[in-house]
Design a protein around this nucleic acid. Structure first.
Lengths: 385, 385
DNA sequence: CACTCTTGGAGAAACGTATCTCCAAGGGCT
DNA sequence: AGCCCTTGGAGATACGTTTCTCCAAGAGTG
């Protein structure tokens, strides 16, 4: 059998190989043509069931596995989706650092696998060495900074890009984000209703969309209700800096009586800082932070958190991306991205479609004052919602 | 320029394409052959620097990006490494669930990228749909169960496999693991020295190597020192089950006065259970658990943890794998895997090379008794180390 | 001058698949 | 009988690289 396969297969110069069986070997062993094998295995063409099953059996017997590389080259599709992970500093990658990224990545992986795609973890740095060597059908970009050159180049080269986080100034196929403004305003309202008179913010120094939008929403709210902004910013990727910033915030002469921390560890940081200054939570200080971690359910006291629902985001991002990938070529055979090149698309058809997803405020003890100090004159005028 | 490129390129039937520039286009535009372009861009062949830089410039101008699929097909190398993630139940994946996996995956990703490879996240289930469609140069398998069919098939098909966790009964190229036996014995000794008379174990019901080796080490130690084993097992992937098992363990009539929990959340679980039963830690109950999380540094009291140093593991696993990948073809051109097919290799050259890596015990308050109940008659005979 | 060696580079053969085109044979219909 | 339509399948091409082989022209050397 094997000898026959080797003999009848047309291998011109190189005499004999003991490599894995190729489609040619299967064809020879089954006594049919390559076309028939391909059609039989892929369920295409018009073949009687008998031929189909016979070919399949032979392929199974030879342990035939189609070459993914050849298939990719031929079809132009690899079944691979890039997942950029933000890389602070040099080597460490944040896709497991924060619970948000971890959950999001997990949901994205799951959604992709469910549709037959696999995720490739890639750094956000634009080193071509790695990016250029991988055939990607599309890419998920997590929270791209303004004018990300990597995103621009990907989009320019025709790879669909869907971002988690509204992109600042770079073109993407689509984007998904939370309604950060609504979330922050909701928290500020919540704190006001709990009796807060002066709400502080613990924010970051980076320019990512989340930080920017949240901070802007805070400042806008302050302007609207007439409160002087009280905030401290620190590099969010530095775990030690958060504690210092929390300390700074509570050490200010205009110390806030409520604080919202934008980053996951801020709850712990603020709690520790409050303890250090002898402030009781929630009696002297109301606390809310944005986190996906459930440790805040068991802290003393439990801390109110804002969940961005990263799993929903991850799932949505991947599904949007795969829709774009499969919509391009599968339908009419018309390549949309080519009909509307990036430069025309950005200017012509307007901004890329974005989806805003709701957040969820998990109210715990840290933001509920048992004996509210005041029930009149809430900081925010009741007329405005 | 572009017109000339299109004209001189030999595109037979299909008239004109607006696709991405290929190597042919670059060759035509630069007035050289395809060979020269390939050599110039890849730094091979004998070319004067002038030609090299000219070709590079033309390629840059045309925005040429080599097709990863074609390169993979030709060279047989994709630059892709599979990372299997254990998938308990259906969809959820554990590569971010536990801090150990998260850290390990992060380190592995980083190490791979540093050597020009990217990681593809793949489920441990042997669904061919995804696995078969991806050209992998090798695979990292996290803690394969005994006789994992996936690993066997991968290995059989010639893909190098390196596992994190000593493989039970399936052939791998190499493996890396902690010295779990030594780690457990070290902890039991540590607890004994702190005054423990009866040490309990919180373990899992699954058959992975870690659980098995650790449990066996515990049982062996018990037999040696003459203590009756006191342990409870539960399905480790169920977060709720841990708390129940911890409760069961402390509710037993032969309640231990020290417990080692094999899984990350066990520290919290045990602490809560101890509180429920009015047991003070460490006065009434000594506690150690295996965890990579630093939350145990701030619990009340801080809990002694065993760190498996997952980053070291991840880095080592990936480096071993890439060594195997590049050693096969790069050196003499001799394909080792073909010279020694799996069946000969397993029987002939003995078990695959394994590396044992040390763990680290981070001693905190939970395992140090302030006033030891007894200083005489430590449970373990001093003669044996 | 005849020769070898080096330099610079061109040609063409794979890699393994998917798919487009085309063909032969048979069967039914007018 | 002539024609068309369906079935079953073969041939050939293209996907875009890398790389092996080979060649021409100069440059040194006896």
């Amino acid at each position: 059998m094997t000898a026959a396969a080797n003999q009848s297969g047309r291998r011109p110069t190189t005499s004999r190989r003991l490599e894995r069986a190729g489609i040619r070997d299967v064809a020879a062993a089954a006594g049919v043509s390559i076309t028939t094998v391909s059609d039989a295995l892929n369920g295409k063409g018009r073949l009687p069931d008998e031929t189909r099953s016979r070919v399949r059996e032979v392929a199974e017997r030879l342990g035939y596995r189609p070459s993914a590389a050849a298939r990719t080259l031929r079809t132009g599709r690899s079944g691979l989706i890039g997942l950029t992970v933000t890389t602070y500093g040099e080597e460490p990658f944040t896709f497991t650092e924060f619970a948000y990224f971890a959950e999001m990545a997990r949901a994205a992986t799951s959604a992709a696998l469910g549709r037959g795609y696999a995720l490739v973890v890639l750094p956000a740095s634009s080193r071509h060495d790695v990016w250029g060597n991988i055939a990607l059908d599309g890419t998920v970009v997590i929270d791209p900074p303004d004018q990300d050159p990597l995103v621009s180049e990907l989009y320019r080269s025709g790879v669909p890009v869907v971002s988690d986080g509204k992109p600042g100034n770079c073109p993407v196929t689509a984007w998904v984000d939370n309604d950060h403004e609504a979330a922050v305003l909701g928290i500020l309202d919540h704190l006001s209703e709990a009796g807060a008179r002066r709400i502080g913010l613990l924010t970051g120094t980076s320019t990512d969309t989340y930080t920017r939008l949240s901070t802007e929403a805070y400042l806008g709210w302050c302007a609207k209700v007439g409160q002087e902004p009280v905030y401290e910013a620190y590099p969010a990727h530095d775990p030690a800096a958060g504690a210092v910033a929390a300390d700074r915030l509570l050490a200010r002469p205009d110390r806030p009586d409520a604080v919202y921390g934008l980053f996951d560890p801020n709850g712990t940081d603020l709690l520790a800082a409050a303890r250090r200054y002898g402030l009781r939570v929630p009696d002297d200080l109301l606390l809310v932070c944005c986190s996906e971690s459930d440790v805040y359910a068991t802290t003393e006291p439990p801390i109110t958190t804002l969940s961005l629902k990263p799993r929903r985001i991850g799932t949505t991002v991947v599904n949007l991306l795969i829709d774009a990938i499969e919509g391009v070529d599968s339908g009419t055979g018309v390549d949309i991205a080519r009909l509307f090149p990036p430069r025309f698309r950005t200017a012509g058809t307007g901004p890329p479609p974005g989806t805003l997803m709701p957040t969820e405020l998990i109210v715990r003890a840290s933001s509920q004052r048992r004996s509210p100090r005041t029930t009149v004159n809430p900081p925010r005028p009741p007329g405005e919602v």
